[in-house]
Design a protein around this nucleic acid. Structure first.
Length: 457
DNA sequence: AAAGCCACCAACCGCCGGCAG
DNA sequence: TCTGCCGGCGGTTGGTGGCTT
């Protein structure tokens, strides 16, 4: 098997990236897209291999990354997804907007595994530890078989890929149900029961999954084929990114595959969120046209920088990775701050979206609800025209739950206008100008950084 | 205060599959 | 069909900071 030619080159730098390197890479990709990764370092003037550049971009520099700690909701989702998908981190990451496979993998290995064990659940099989231990006694090989989930998910995913183009619902579940036997572990019971509780309101859920596995599989069915690069592009950066070239890699998959409404409403179920939340705030049916690009485009449309409430003034971009660099001193500088002191996060609207949702889930409905509704409606990408709502009764029905018809159109039109009026497809020229009240905590340093990077804020 | 341990995270490594020549 | 390149993935490693003793 051929190795990357870059691996043979000895002069290439390794290890942590310096801010200068980041700047070069970011600047290069911002201007030209990455194109062929192997040529990126040369073009960008970096002593790195293309692979390293790619990794740095995907895991760190990508503008739509959500940073900061994982929410409980995200953790639960990861656990549930892991049960279905096994160690397919990239696929799991695809369901978590703004998160990278690396991040999730690290979280799993460092944190979630332990949590599961503490709960008496085997992190490999997701079965109760006692059961696993019994099984181990009887059949040690079986208990070590980490491919269990993979085997299931392989066939499932194949099915899903095959069935993707079909209408959502029964036939897919039927096919799946024949190959998937229900399991009775705790997670499933929780998810299932909470799901039924959620569904008990006779809401507009088209699907009625009967297990958490179904939840995921149904969620997947709403996604376009993996690998379909689609029109899903972070339009917000499009003004400066040659997006046709800019393969967002897992980012693209992430956005492409994300069906936030299902994802959120279903995930909320497993957390026992209230019905009102999912049925009134979020359309339970992902607008078909929205699905492919909802998050990525909304990300692009409405980027923002927020700071954690506990320390809104702290700098800045990439705190942890720059811990060696940010003071301008080498690593032995005892003054270098650490990530634990708080971060200002470069967030996109999808993460805002989620944060708003998450905060609702925690019962904080006060100020975020309206704002998030605006996000939901207002963040429609330019390729989701308001007339698509008219043509899609499901979409309309869902949308009408949030707002009356008139305001919906007016909002969509307004946002569409904002987007299409911006011929370059960039972010609205000045986010603060447009929504001065929404991001009061924008750190000037971040603004500088973004300005330097994208040149048009 | 120092040493040891632990947790976290960024980055590397090796492999695989797709694709073009 | 073969070969090499490339992107992508998952496993693993190494560095760092924080906590404990």
């Amino acid at each position: 098997m051929g190795r990357h030619s870059c691996c043979y080159k000895q002069k290439l730098r390794k290890g942590l990236w310096s801010p200068e390197e980041d700047e070069k890479l970011l600047g290069h990709i911002t201007r030209y897209g990455h194109g062929c990764w192997s040529s990126v370092p040369k073009q960008a003037g970096l002593q790195r291999c293309g692979k390293s550049c790619r990794l740095r971009w995907i895991n760190y520099l990508r503008p739509d990354l959500k940073r900061g700690t994982f929410s409980q909701l995200e953790e639960n989702l990861i656990i549930e997804l892991h049960e279905v998908l096994g160690n397919r981190w990239s696929q799991i990451a695809a369901q978590l907007p703004g998160r990278t496979d690396n991040e999730i993998k690290n979280l799993w290995n460092s944190c979630l595994k332990k949590k599961l064990r503490q709960r008496g659940i085997d992190p490999v099989t997701h079965k109760p530890l006692s059961e696993v231990e019994d099984g181990e006694d009887k059949n040690p090989a079986a208990s070590r078989n980490q491919d269990k989930a993979s085997a299931v998910s392989n066939s499932e995913l194949n099915l899903l890929k095959a069935d993707h183009s079909e209408p959502l619902g029964a036939n897919i579940r039927e096919k799946r149900s024949s190959s998937i036997s229900p399991r009775g572990n705790q997670l499933e019971r929780e998810s299932t029961s909470s799901f039924h509780a959620m569904n008990g309101n006779g809401g507009n859920n088209l699907m009625a999954p009967t297990s958490n596995r179904d939840l995921f599989l149904d969620r997947f069915t709403a996604f376009p084929h993996e690998g379909s690069t689609s029109s899903c592009q972070p339009s917000g950066f499009g003004g400066h990114f040659p997006l046709q070239q800019l393969n967002y890699a897992s980012n693209a998959r992430l956005a492409t595959n994300s069906a936030p409404s299902i994802w959120l409403s279903q995930t909320s179920k497993s957390l026992g969120m209230n019905c009102e939340f999912s049925s009134t705030v979020i359309p339970s049916i992902p607008p078909p046209a929205v699905t492919s690009s909802f998050l990525s485009s909304s990300m692009g449309y409405k980027p923002s920088i927020t700071a954690p409430p506990d320390n809104p003034s702290l700098p800045s971009f990439a705190t942890t990775s720059y811990r060696l660099w940010e003071t301008g001193a080498p690593s032995n500088n005892s003054n270098s701050s650490t990530g634990s002191s708080g971060r200002t996060e470069l967030q996109n609207s999808s993460s805002l979206f989620e944060n708003a949702i998450f905060s609702w889930g925690l019962g904080d409905c006060s100020s975020t609800e309206k704002e998030a509704q605006n996000h939901l409606i207002g963040s429609q990408p330019e390729d989701i025209k308001w007339h698509e709502y008219l043509q899609n009764p499901l979409l309309m029905a869902a949308a009408l739950q949030n707002q009356n018809q008139q305001s919906l159109y007016s909002e969509i039109k307004t946002e569409t206008h904002l987007l299409t009026g911006n011929s370059s497809g960039m972010w609205p020229h000045n986010q603060q100008e447009q929504e001065p009240s929404q991001n009061p905590d924008i750190c000037p340093k971040d603004m500088q950084r973004i300005t330097a990077s994208y040149g048009y804020i």
